[in-house]
Each structure stands twice: as C-alpha cells, then as structure tokens.
C-alpha cells in the first residue's frame, strides 16, 4: 500500500519536521492574534462610530475573503507594489495574524457583550473604579468563556496553515510530494501511504486540542 516508504531512511523525521514548520507558523500567528484580538475586541465595544465602522469593514473583509486570496495579495501583490521581497514565511504570518485577529476580536466582543449591563452598574454603585470593575468582575468571567474558544482557534489556525504550501514553503505536504517523487520507481503506490500518513499527522495534531477545548467548555459552562 506504500506505507513502507515512510520508514525508509529519514523519511518519517522529514515529514515530522515539515509538520513542525506549519505548527511553528500557527503558534506565532495565534500568539499575535490573541493579543491583538483582545485589543480590537475591546475597541469594538466602545460604541465610537468611527472605530465601529472600521472594525465592521475589517470583519466583513475577513468573513468573505478566503485566506488563500489574502495570502496571494500579500505575497505577490506586496512584492509587485514595493519591489522589495517579502519572504513567504513572513507573509503567511502576516495573513494568518490578520485573519486570526478578526476571529479573536469577534469572540472577545461576543464575550464582553454577553456580560449583563447590571454587573457594570452594580460595580459602579459599590464604588469600584472602572479599572477595578474590569479586573475583579468582568475579566475573570470572560476568561473562562474565552479560553476554550481561543484553544479552538489554535486548531483552526493549524488547519489553515496547510495553505502555506501554495506559496512555496516546504511543509509536510511538500515533503510528502518529494518523498513520492524520489521513490517513484521503487514504490509506485507511495502516494497512498504518504498522504494517508499526512492526513493522520494533521488529525493527531488537531484532535487532542479540540478535545481539550470541548472539555474546558463543558467544565466551565456555568
């Protein structure tokens, strides 16, 4: 079935290091997205018309533009416009952070407006300052709702980073193709085995994280 190719020489290690490239980019992008997303999400609840209009347009762009199109715009368009060369890895981090920030901001906004107004009013009536209200009342509640959702964002980010192959970064799919090419004569059925293993590797990377997210969500439901 073509599975024997995987364990020939250093092939399996090469596949894993290919997966690590994708995972590294997703971890960096998620970290940036979470920080920026919290800031943008809080800005969105301020009810300032200009900020509202800008963030609405931003969210709508991310909602309807495929990540792949954004990737092409940054990777090809930026190079063409400025004449300087943006590395594929940097452009993918920019695009995935741009996308992740919007997703995260929407989650943060959803959590913030789900806190009843009465809690803000009660804190004010008790004499808490604005900062104290946030630190002692609002943020502890939000964090419990936000953590499972942000963990879920990580799995979505990992799945999205598989696209980097399309702008020429050598990651797990590309390594898989190279292995198949190199063994075309000796193992003609390698394509099945290699892509089945890649499929499984992605599943093993994402599944535990989704399970954790579901578990935390259930645990902190109330």
């Amino acid at each position: 079935m073509g599975f024997e190719v995987i364990f020939k020489g250093k092939n399996f290690i090469r596949l894993l290091s290919g997966l690590c490239v994708a995972l590294r980019i997703s971890v960096i992008s998620v970290a940036i997205s979470i920080v920026l997303g919290i800031v943008v999400g809080m800005l969105m609840t301020l009810k300032k018309p200009v900020i509202n209009a800008v963030t609405r347009v931003y969210l709508e762009i991310v909602r309807i533009m495929p990540q792949m199109v954004l990737l092409f715009i940054v990777f090809f368009g930026f190079t063409k416009m400025t004449g300087s060369n943006l590395s594929a890895e940097l452009s993918s981090i920019i695009v995935f952070s741009f996308w992740g920030t919007a997703e995260m901001a929407d989650l943060v906004r959803g959590c913030l407006i789900s806190i009843p107004v009465i809690q803000y009013e009660s804190s004010k009536a008790l004499g808490l300052s604005r900062l104290q209200t946030y630190v002692y009342v609002i943020i502890p509640q939000i964090i419990r709702r936000l953590i499972p959702l942000s963990i879920n964002l990580i799995t979505r980010m990992i799945k999205t980073t598989s696209l980097i192959m399309m702008i020429g970064i050598v990651e797990v799919l590309k390594v898989g193709q190279q292995i198949i090419e190199a063994n075309r004569k000796s193992a003609p059925k390698a394509a099945f085995g290699v892509f089945a293993v890649v499929f499984l590797l992605y599943f093993l990377a994402c599944w535990p994280i989704s399970c954790l997210s579901k578990y935390l969500e259930k645990k902190w439901e109330n």
Partner: peptide, 23 residues
C-alpha cells in the same frame, strides 16, 4: 466527524486526488 473536522481540506483533497489513484 472527528476525522474530517480536524484535518484541512487541502490534505483531504491530496489524499483523494493523488493518494487514491495509487490503489
């Protein structure tokens, strides 16, 4: 559901389009 929700479409397509013809 678990298998397909936790893998990217690109990988699924590669498996169906390039992997399956080998068998």
């Amino acid at each position: 559901v678990e298998l397909f929700r936790n893998t990217p479409l690109l990988v699924q397509l590669f498996f169906i389009y390039y992997g399956l013809p080998a068998v």
